[in-house]
């Protein structure tokens, strides 16, 4: 069993978990969500082992580096962080149905990594610029941040589709109360904001140790800053201008679009950040 195989299987396990969670919601069967949780945990275990195996394999090949060095590896890690964060939220808040809005993101990221023809899954050596312990700190924190924003995005969608008043027993009434969802979005955004902040800072310290400038307005850097500004705006709107619920959900969706652009879109712009 090598890491690629394990990660391919993980992709299907995650797909199954999302289907179960969505099924639990649409058919109003809580039991399905319980199975979904077990499936998700299984997928998460596979995901974890896949990353560890890949790490070991890279040493066996002789390249020897942490598996955070290209688009494929970062997407796999992104799935891992979103899954981890979601599991934590479900554990802490004891809400199951919300998995229907978080697990599809876990699946989509790893499926995109495995299936997109433009993303190579080969283990490649590290170019000199990436040889730094800061790489690990930078990638892990950035992706924890992205994961927070991704889950916040899922919950924002959930918030927006739930009407103010729901008849008992309907699909929408199965969703958590608006207050709880609002709180969840805020918690996820704060989590994401903290880690994006640390991610930008570690990247900046790294840039200073590698190239002598902690900030150089390269497009990827700039876009991460733009994303950071958007979430800072969200926090202030919420704290000081009393924005809640629907309006905050929209801001969080815009923020997540900025995350996606920072992650994928920047590669279309002139610049040198080769991945992640």
């Amino acid at each position: 069993m090598n890491s690629s195989m394990l990660l391919s299987i993980t992709t299907f396990v995650y797909a199954l978990a999302s289907v179960l969670y969505i099924g639990a919601w649409t058919f109003k069967k809580d039991a399905l969500a319980k199975i979904g949780l077990f499936t998700l945990v299984a997928g998460f275990t596979g995901n974890t082992l896949g990353i560890i195996f890949r790490w070991i394999e890279s040493y066996q090949i002789g390249y020897g580096h942490a598996p955070f060095s290209n688009m494929y590896e970062s997407l796999v890690f992104f799935s891992w962080t979103v899954a981890a964060l979601y599991l934590f939220v479900e554990y802490k808040y004891r809400e199951r149905i919300i998995g229907a809005f978080a697990t599809p993101l876990v699946f989509l990221a790893i499926a995109y990594a495995s299936l997109s023809p433009s993303i190579g899954s080969k283990i490649t050596p590290l170019i000199p610029a990436l040889k730094s312990n800061w790489l690990i700190a930078h990638v892990i924190t950035c992706f924890l941040g992205y994961a927070g924003f991704a889950v916040a995005f899922g919950f924002s969608v959930m918030y927006l589709i739930k009407p103010e008043k729901t008849a008992p027993g309907t699909l929408m009434s199965k969703l958590p109360s608006l207050d709880i969802m609002d709180e969840l979005i805020h918690q996820m955004v704060m989590f994401g904001f903290l880690f994006l902040t640390i991610g930008i800072i570690t990247g900046s310290v790294w840039a200073n140790s590698a190239w002598g400038t902690y900030w150089s307005w390269d497009p990827k850097e700039t876009w991460s800053l733009i994303t950071w500004f958007i979430y800072a705006i969200l926090l202030h709107l919420r704290m000081m201008r009393g924005w809640h619920g629907r309006r905050i959900s929209w801001v969080s969706i815009v923020g997540f679009l900025a995350v996606l652009f920072t992650y994928f879109g920047v590669n279309l712009l002139p610049g040198l950040h080769s991945y992640a």
Partner: peptide, 14 residues
């Protein structure tokens, strides 16, 4: 230029 295609490359510097 050795920074090229780096993770945090700096276009202007390079």
């Amino acid at each position: 230029s050795v920074g090229q295609s780096s993770a945090d490359g700096q276009s202007s510097a390079d």
